[in-house]
């Protein structure tokens, strides 16, 4: 509804309308979020995940790295809810501690990717003479298949959580920047942005108030995707042998350790896999909820 207002009106009434819209957003934002079912479900899942990760030492029933030859490959039971692995370690405890590592990697990647993606994407689309330069540089990075880049970096720097974060951020930033740029390019040509130019709004103001705000929905979809993919990508890197090193568990390296015995001891790979699926599902639900509420064009639909 604010879109129509901008498109129909000109001059002073535009500013007034924008100000009212902003006040409405801030007051109703939280309420809307919590009332939104998919956001609420997703947030609840993420909250549980974060709490478990943060309080892992209090929640985990056993030491996640304690081997025991006596308890090798026990199926799930009351004693070991998720069973044990080929080292005789409790899978539940490893999953709980693994949540920490996976969460840390994914959050770091999302933050870095978001920051660099927005900066580069906006620069490329807004400052015309920079566009070709930035985009060719990003194309160069993108032309490196991400997994191969990660493997090469891990071979060079040694596998570690930091290497994974660097490799994944470098891999996802160009894609994020492209999505931001594509979104901005579409929005840029729209009448209300041209109107804002006409009324003499500053470049920074236009970028933040109009363009970025409106390019946000593809960005959020992209970042939820990055978050999801980061958790999965950590698993892939571990699968290829270049994830965080042992013995510290991550959701990915638990699956990687279980992949060879998936027929004999399905529980090793299945439980962390399910945890990944549920957490990623929660993240995506949250992202969708956010998107519905932030994107003004969606409001009338609700």
């Amino acid at each position: 509804m604010s879109v129509e207002a901008i498109q129909d009106d000109t001059g002073g009434s535009l500013r007034a309308e924008m100000a009212r819209a902003r006040r409405r957003r801030t007051t109703q934002f939280v309420v809307r979020l919590l009332r939104h079912p998919s956001f609420a479900i997703g947030a609840a899942i993420l909250l549980v995940f974060v709490v478990v990760a943060v309080f892992a030492p209090l929640i985990a029933p056993y030491d996640p790295n304690k081997n025991s030859y006596r308890f090798v490959l026990y199926p799930p039971s009351a004693e070991f809810l998720f069973g044990t692995d080929s080292f005789g370690r409790d899978i539940l405890s490893r999953v709980i501690y693994g949540a920490r590592v996976s969460l840390y990697i994914a959050v770091a990647v999302v933050v870095l990717t978001g920051i660099f993606g927005v900066i580069l994407g906006t620069l490329a689309s807004y400052v015309r003479w920079l566009d070709a330069f930035v985009m060719r540089g990003l194309d160069g990075l993108m032309a490196f298949p991400g997994v191969l880049l990660a493997i090469a970096l891990a071979a060079a720097l040694g596998p570690s959580a930091t290497t994974a974060i660097v490799a994944l951020s470098v891999t996802f930033t160009p894609r994020t920047a492209r999505v931001v740029r594509a979104g901005v390019l579409v929005v840029q040509g729209m009448q209300y942005v041209e109107a804002a130019h006409a009324v003499g709004a500053s470049h920074l103001r236009i970028i933040f108030r109009y363009i970025l705000a409106n390019a946000l929905s593809p960005l959020i979809v992209q970042l939820t995707y990055v978050f999801a993919v980061s958790i999965i990508a950590e698993a892939i890197l571990s699968f290829l042998g270049v994830g965080p090193p042992p013995p510290a568990p991550s959701l990915g390296n638990i699956i990687a350790e279980g992949r060879n015995t998936i027929q004999e001891a399905w529980w090793i790979a299945v439980f962390p896999g399910l945890v990944i699926a549920v957490v990623v599902l929660g993240l995506n639900l949250m992202g969708d909820g956010l998107r519905d509420i932030i994107d003004p064009r969606q409001r009338n639909e609700r």
Binding site: N65, K66, N67, S86, F87, A154, A155, G158, P159, G241, V242, P245, P246, P247
Partner: peptide
């Protein structure tokens, strides 16, 4: 796997073990 189990056992006697797992040529 040998490295992981050795590391745990050496930690148990108080040795501060850090596993450096790299690829084969490295």
């Amino acid at each position: 796997k040998t490295a992981v189990v050795i590391a745990e056992q050496l930690k148990a006697v108080g040795i501060n073990v850090v596993i450096n797992q790299v690829d084969w040529p490295s």
